[in-house]
Nucleic acid binder design. Sequence first.
RNA 1: CGGGAGGUGGCGCAGCUCGGAUUAGCGCACUUGCAUGGGGUGCAAGGGGCCGUGGGUUCAAAUCCCACUCUCCCGACCA
Length: 409
Amino acid sequence: MLFSKSFIFTQREDPKVAECKSHKLLLRGGFLFMVSSGIYSYLPLGYRVLNNINNIIRKHMNSKGAQEILMSALQPIEIWQKTGRDKDLAEVMFRFKDRKDRDICLGPTHEEEITEIIRRSVSSYKQLPMILYQIQTKFRDEPRPRFGLMRSCEFIMKDAYSFDKDNQGLDQNYEKMFQAYKDIFSECGLDFIDIEADSGAMGGNLSHEFMVPGDTGEDLLFKCSDCAKYFKNEGQCPDCKKKLEEAKMIEVGHIFKLGTKYSKAQEAFFLNEFGKRIPFIMGCYGIGVSRILSAIAEVNSDEKGLVWPKGVSPFDLSLVVLDDTILPKALELEEALEGEGLSVLIDDRQEAAGVKFNDAYLLGNPYILIMGKKYLKDGTIDLEIRKTRTSKSFKKGDLIKFLKDEYSR
RNA sequence: CGGGAGGUGGCGCAGCUCGGAUUAGCGCACUUGCAUGGGGUGCAAGGGGCCGUGGGUUCAAAUCCCACUCUCCCGACCA
């Protein structure tokens, strides 16, 4: 893709509205547009990253047999009254009336709605177990949105719900999702930990949180300086007896064994193999998709800009072209790389070399290719690894082979 | 919702203390031309602003006073 034809706009200076690293860089690099506090639009670069994350999530959810759906964002308030959560979540709900004077809210979460769907469409144990998930925008009227996408009023969440006939089934699905979550966060390049957590207003009897250490984290754990293990309470490390230090953590995922809290309240029953009418045993599994995006940005940057891990970066490669006469050759190289499944952003703009280099650093694609004088002289293409800022020189054929290997790992 | 800081062309800022000659300024970005072309390049000429909103005070307000609003930070809150 040609930079000159793309809707990418970068800014030289940090925006004043941003304080934390990820917020600054995502705005400066033109990944996001800030509409208002806690409200953001995704521009092409940001949307590409978001979709990469979505696809990683889909891959791992589907591999566990979960099926993707998309529920409504508009929800009549009645379904919330059955569980009483219209009151529990009253503060964060965006609520209003439609023209028929009916109470409606923009869904802050979807336990009630999925339970309604299952209540009316599943009546036998033979249809179980089942896991459904969606990737959707949630709406919460946050008292204090902050840190850019980290805590916003409109954000994207992947929420999954499991339905089982008994607790053994729930345990199995919970374990499956646990594993899927580990795979998802790993593939997103996140250094995460999982820890048993409180269920809070979600109810249920067991939950685990997935967290990433980061300055903008709103959760606090305690870390052993010696063995690097994390603990919920301040004390001393049970293993090495070292004093623990505070560690701010960004919550990126949370899974819950809900049991029958929602199915009972909403009278979602099925007949089991003994002909007995019992409530579904439920689990729910959430990932903050937009929060993953900002968490990755938060923990992967340097003084020059973002450093996206492979697999989530907007493009696999930035190709800086420093002489217009080389552009046809650059397009040929792009075609060859795309043939290997790699995406390329060709910087063909009429800009000074420094501008192009600095923008390439700011955008943070994992590899930066340079075609300029050396290429004109003897066909040499320089490759710079964004993360380490180290360079290697290649001829075209070797370069393609090198990149192919890098991306197959 | 408490506490703090701040709103001046698209972005980043100066001007405000001590109201008036500054035609509201600077850097970046933008437009045009020439030069340049491996690290935010040089020169020249341009376009773009009801100084967050509303009300006061005054002969005169970006500047002083009041109210509101928006943004950021700390806290409370956070399925």
